[in-house]
């Protein structure tokens, strides 16, 4: 891993070996298992995985957005611009969430208060975090809306959320997220509910703004193609573990983990029409009773004996790591010791 102390200082977000579980009626759901994610300054990082793989839980845990008392952190650490968010109380977290990190969610309607005009919601956020006066806040809000290609920002600020289309609402939310100049934006499936033409625009807007202001972005998505277009690096998650990460192009052009390979092969885009897709058999394991060894092994096409007994650790070099016994990683070299 690239978590040397020297590098740590340059990190926007450094999640190290985070493990987390949700206690439930029938037992603990081990939602995250030794998840490590590093986001450098001004870097756009993707987290890809299917629903329930823990991609949202990771960032929500890091920003204290999970419901209190409903989860247990069983190991690991989180440094957000060198602050330990796991040790913060709610009021400190609120401060952090406005100034250092903002989150954009999938459903823009839920994130906006339906009874308050767009303009007031925007200026309230700006005034709270930037300590700006009302005229200043209005000016900032106007500029940032224009930056999000919203024509007539003055008029839009007088509207209520329900008067906007889904794409407009999402752009307002992105404006809100960027309005306090946070160092890190977490975009959690921000375009999943939107049409492709709107999605393309919104991805561009996020990318342009982030590049210009040097903001780091964590982009969470189930859509590998979207991530391939937007992100510098990507992490692939499966069943609460990171299975592979590295530079986007490297990972997607030559995936090493069988899961990543299967994920790419089952897309219709890469197969001749009407040909059978290489579906991944079976389903994602339940995290209450995960399989022994590698979690992907029951669905893997080429498991070896080791896969069934011991879970592989991430190993590799040059910021490119994969957790798979088949990739020539001898058990000794992948021990925890070498990573710390």
């Amino acid at each position: 891993m690239m978590t040397g102390t020297a590098e740590l200082r340059g990190q926007a977000l450094a999640i190290h070996n985070l493990s987390l579980e949700f206690p439930t009626f029938s037992g603990a759901v081990k939602a995250l298992d030794n998840v490590s994610i590093n986001v450098g300054k001004a870097e756009i990082v993707g987290i890809v995985g299917e629903s329930g793989c823990g991609k949202s839980v990771t960032t929500m845990a890091a920003t204290g957005l999970l419901p209190r008392g409903r989860y247990r952190i069983t190991g690991g650490s989180v440094r957000l611009f060198n602050h330990n968010t796991l040790a913060m109380d709610e009021s400190q977290l609120q401060d952090v969430r406005g100034k250092m990190v903002s989150t954009i969610f999938q459903e823009p309607m839920n994130a906006l208060n339906p009874t308050i005009r767009i303009g007031k919601q925007l200026t309230d956020v700006i005034m709270r975090h930037e300590e700006a006066s009302l005229p200043d806040a209005r000016r900032i809000a106007r500029d940032i809306l224009a930056d999000m290609l919203i024509g007539e920002p003055e008029r839009v600020m007088k509207l209520y959320p329900f008067e906007l289309s889904g794409g407009m609402r999402q752009r307002v939310l992105i404006a809100m997220a960027f309005s306090c100049n946070p160092g890190l934006i977490i975009a959690d499936e921000p375009t999943t509910a939107l049409d492709v033409t709107v999605q393309a625009v919104i991805l561009r807007l996020i990318q342009n703004r982030a590049r210009r202001t040097g903001t780091s972005v964590v982009f969470i998505s189930h859509n590998v193609a979207v991530v391939s277009q937007l992100c510098d690096r990507l992490y692939v998650m499966y069943a609460g573990r990171i299975v592979e990460h590295g530079a986007t192009r490297t990972v997607l052009d030559a995936p090493l983990h069988p899961y990543t390979q299967a994920l790419l092969r089952c897309l219709p885009e890469r197969v001749a029409p009407k040909q059978e897709l290489e579906a991944i058999t079976g389903a994602v394991p339940t995290l209450m009773h995960p399989p022994a060894g590698c979690y992907f092994q029951p669905r893997c096409k080429e498991p070896v004996d080791l896969c069934r007994s011991r879970s592989p650790q991430l190993a590799g070099s040059d910021g490119r790591e994969v957790a798979c016994w088949r990739r020539g990683v001898a058990p000794e070299t992948s021990e925890q010791g070498s990573r710390q």
């Binding site: 794409g167 492709v196 393309a200 561009r204 885009e269």
Partner: peptide
């Protein structure tokens, strides 16, 4: 043409905003 240009794809980079012809 617009629809195809904006569909996410491995083969092509993110389209520019002008290419997408944004509009409601």
């Amino acid at each position: 043409q617009t629809l195809l240009a904006s569909a996410p794809s491995f083969a092509s980079p993110l389209p520019t905003i002008a290419e997408v012809r944004m509009g409601e």
